[in-house]
């Protein structure tokens, strides 16, 4: 750093704060810059109600990114989540068919499906030694097919209000903020639990070690299949949760989950996780997901048509992966 070579009193005073700032992950600055830019384009944006509505729309992706990060730190991918979202929304409508009494059972059923998908992915990757990319790509296609079969090719049934409450309704009378969407509350709880799981438990540390060096992890006694199954289950459960929220505010359609798998991966990579595994942070991954959403909002405000989204997203994945490769090269 150029500053540290000249020790004027001024730089000496500044050095420590500068070092502390340099230690903050870049994604937070990117996020802050995007939010500020959006505020310039839309002066209403900083108001609690508007901002919370933005956060609510971002919630499914943020939850999905949290789940995806568990898989990515072990050195895998989960591409099946997009179709699982679609299946959740369509399945929710079919299972309840607008009948509020059936909602609890429907939700339990959907989570059981998610559990099954996660376990299946984990088993195939662990024991059949198929790469997670191929396994979950196959699952992506299979689940989409299952959703089509189940619904007969077109969305059928509709979601009762008590199913949609999570994505649509607000908690009223919160001090300072007024009403807070349930989705945002779920998001906060989810983020805290996910952060604790990855950074505060043995499980998270083992997952990182497995992604870093599976052979060393196995020789240290870590049961790798269990870890792999657990991370795929977490990712699938996240997808079901995201699906239930999306069903709440987006409604029932055949392509509600399309593309979410890639957005989640882009978000996690933007949040500084290494695609080869062994490195990732839950708070920055969630910040990455929020940044991606903020970027899309900004592109909208700037009047750019939606195909830009896809292009930008692709470039982010390539750029972030290239940056990570460059960084790991200069490290070794």
């Amino acid at each position: 750093m150029a500053l540290s070579t000249r020790t004027t009193p001024f730089t000496r005073v500044l050095r420590k704060p500068l070092k502390m700032v340099a230690a903050i992950p870049a994604i937070y600055f990117i996020l802050a810059a995007l939010l500020i830019w959006i505020s310039f384009e839309n002066p209403n944006f900083p108001q609690p109600e508007v901002f919370l509505a933005f956060l609510r729309r971002a919630t499914p992706l943020l939850i999905l990114a949290a789940g995806q990060l568990f898989v990515i730190v072990t050195g895998g991918f989960d591409l099946s989540v997009g179709s699982l979202i679609t299946l959740t929304v369509l399945g929710g409508a079919l299972l309840t068919d607008g009948n509020a009494d059936r909602t609890p059972l429907a939700i339990v059923t959907l989570y059981l499906i998610g559990l099954g998908v996660g376990i299946f992915n984990g088993l195939v990757v662990s024991y059949l030694r198929v790469s997670s990319f191929i396994t979950t790509l196959g699952m992506l296609i299979a689940l989409k097919g299952a959703a089509l079969l189940w619904s007969g090719g077109a969305p059928a049934g509709y979601l009762p209000d008590n199913f949609r409450i999570f994505g649509r309704q607000n908690l009223e009378g919160v001090p300072y903020l007024g009403k807070v969407p349930y989705a945002v509350i779920i998001l906060v709880v989810y983020s805290l639990v996910a952060t604790y799981l990855l950074h505060g438990t043995n499980f998270g540390k083992k997952a990182l070690a497995v992604g870093d060096n599976p052979r060393a992890a196995a020789l240290s006694g870590i049961a790798i299949p269990r870890i792999r199954i657990a991370v795929f289950v977490l990712s699938s459960i996240s997808a079901v949760t995201a699906g239930i929220l999306l069903g709440g505010f987006a409604g029932v359609s055949m392509n509600v989950g399309d593309g979410y798998e890639l957005e989640a991966i882009a978000a996690v990579v933007l949040g500084g996780a290494m695609l080869m595994g062994g490195k990732g942070s839950m708070p920055t991954a969630i910040a990455g997901a929020l940044s991606l959403r903020a970027l899309f909002t900004l592109l909208n405000l700037l009047g750019l048509p939606s195909p830009y989204r896809a292009a930008v997203q692709g470039l982010i994945i390539i750029g972030a992966a290239a940056y990570a490769a460059f960084r790991s090269q200069s490290e070794s």
Binding site: H199, G200, K205, A216, S220
Partner: peptide, 24 residues
């Protein structure tokens, strides 16, 4: 596990003996 800290590497095998949800 080269990208993990000294601390986490020292505890790698110990943690394998512990329950998954044991807090770090």
């Amino acid at each position: 596990a080269l990208r993990q800290s000294v601390w986490d590497n020292v505890l790698l095998a110990f943690r394998a003996l512990q329950h998954m949800l044991t807090p770090v």
